[in-house]
Amino acid sequence: MTSDNHAERQAGVIILSQLKMFNEAAVVFETLIQPAFWKGFDLCIARFAKKNEWECQLNFSLNDYCWLAPKHWKVGAKKWKCWFETHTHQGDGVNYNLAAITGVGVKDAQFGFCFEIQASHFGGSKKLDAHINNLDPKYRTTLVNCLDFDDLSGGRFFLPVNVDLDQVIQCWQEFGKFPEDHEVFASVRDALEKLQEAVYTFDAMFLSSPEESNT
């Protein structure tokens, strides 16, 4: 792999000229800071899920992914009609997740929660698209204008989450970890509350379909 981009080459020169320091910083970041942050993130979601009787799958630090959903979206032992999952919009795979969630990632990466729906419960993608096209526009207006979701099309809605980097720095400096009840996760808690509020709209959009009554 080569780079014809001047800025990338200059960045490479800086890294290579300070490789020892860069390596030490990367080791601390990848083995201590990131795992500690995502542990706090997991615990924040776990607390919310327990309080509201939702189900979730966590361990973001290991999987780069987690999901959660209210129990009434479950349609089988391990099957869900819809759910919320962590998602990086733009720049996925080229950023550290901590950089994305603090708004300093490359390629305008945004971290957040994405509403996902299983098309098979509508009889396939074509039927799901037809269902979406027939929905009252008021639902999309509520999600986008009132609850700050982005419409990614196909029934997918993305709620960005941005954590204040200065608070991340201060929290690490003070505690050497990221307690789930710390102010650093205030925006995550706010986003979780919005997910809960959005459930009523998603229920009206997708749990009242003819196919649903037959599942």
Rank of each mutant, 00 (worst) to 15 (best):
V184F: 10
E55N: 13
G12A: 06
F175E: 07
G103W: 03
A77Y: 13
R140F: 01
L58N: 11
A100L: 01
V75C: 14
G12L: 01
Q18D: 09
V163I: 11
P160L: 04
E8H: 03
E30I: 01
P137K: 04
M205V: 07
T88D: 06
K50F: 06
E180H: 15
L58G: 13
L195S: 14
L207K: 09
S153N: 09
D64Q: 13
N95C: 06
Q173F: 07
G93L: 00
A26Y: 00
Q118I: 05
F22T: 00
S120G: 14
I169V: 09
K39R: 09
T201P: 15
M205R: 10
D108L: 08
T141A: 12
V75E: 13
A130D: 15
I33L: 13
H131T: 08
F84N: 05
W83K: 06
Q34K: 11
W54C: 07
M1R: 09
N95A: 08
G93F: 05
G124A: 13
P210H: 12
T215S: 14
L152F: 06
F22R: 02
D150P: 06
Q57E: 05
M205D: 10
V163S: 11
L98D: 04
A49H: 08
T88N: 14
D42E: 04
G93Y: 07
C146T: 00
F175D: 07
K51P: 03
E212A: 11
V28R: 13
E53P: 08
D136A: 12
K177C: 06
L135E: 06
P179H: 04
F175C: 07
A186H: 10
D190E: 14
P160M: 05
G176S: 07
R9T: 02
F111N: 13
S17P: 13
A36H: 10
D164T: 00
D164P: 01
T31V: 04
E53N: 15
F41C: 10
A46V: 01
M21D: 12
K79N: 14
V75M: 14
F115D: 06
V28Y: 12
L147G: 06
H121Y: 15
F111P: 14
Q196W: 11
G12Q: 01
N133G: 15
A109L: 04
F48D: 03
D164V: 02
Q90W: 09
S120T: 07
W73A: 04
G123H: 12
L165P: 04
D136Q: 10
K78A: 05
E197H: 14
N97T: 01
T215V: 13
W172T: 01
S213D: 10
Q167F: 05
E174R: 07
A49R: 07
L68S: 03
N214I: 09
Q34R: 12
N133P: 03
N59L: 03
A26K: 03
R189I: 03
W73L: 05
N97R: 15
E193R: 15
E8V: 01
A186S: 12
A69N: 11
C56D: 10
W172A: 07
K126E: 12
K39S: 08
S120A: 15
E30G: 09
G40I: 01
S3H: 02
